[in-house]
């Protein structure tokens, strides 16, 4: 079992139209301190590629991606 990651902020991005999940997470990540973690929930399959690409571009780190039914959960650590 992997270690449980504790999120400092949870964002519900389910069912949002393009490109809102990335827009929201970009803003949301700035609302936590560097080193803190945001947990984002998305239902879009595109976010499986969008989020990692966004993380690389913006210099943040995706700690874990997990699938929970239809929902994809991203644990993102603010590093920039």
């Amino acid at each position: 079992m992997s270690e449980e990651i504790k999120a400092d902020k949870v964002m519900d991005l389910r069912g949002m139209p393009c490109p809102m999940p990335v827009v929201k997470i970009s803003k949301g990540i700035k609302e936590v301190e560097i080193g803190q973690v945001v947990e984002a929930h998305s239902t879009d399959p595109g976010s499986l590629t969008d989020f990692p690409a966004w993380a690389r571009t913006s210099g943040n780190e995706i700690l874990k991606t997990e699938q929970d039914g239809d929902v994809i959960k991203f644990f993102i650590k603010r590093t920039a």
Binding site: P19, P45, L48, D50, P52, W54, T57, S58
Partner: peptide, 20 residues
């Protein structure tokens, strides 16, 4: 940022294919 994300996706598509 959104444009850069799209471009980055093009660059690293091989890494992202499986999860997509």
């Amino acid at each position: 940022l959104l444009a850069d994300t799209s471009i980055e996706k093009g660059r690293s598509i091989d890494l992202l294919k499986t999860s997509f």
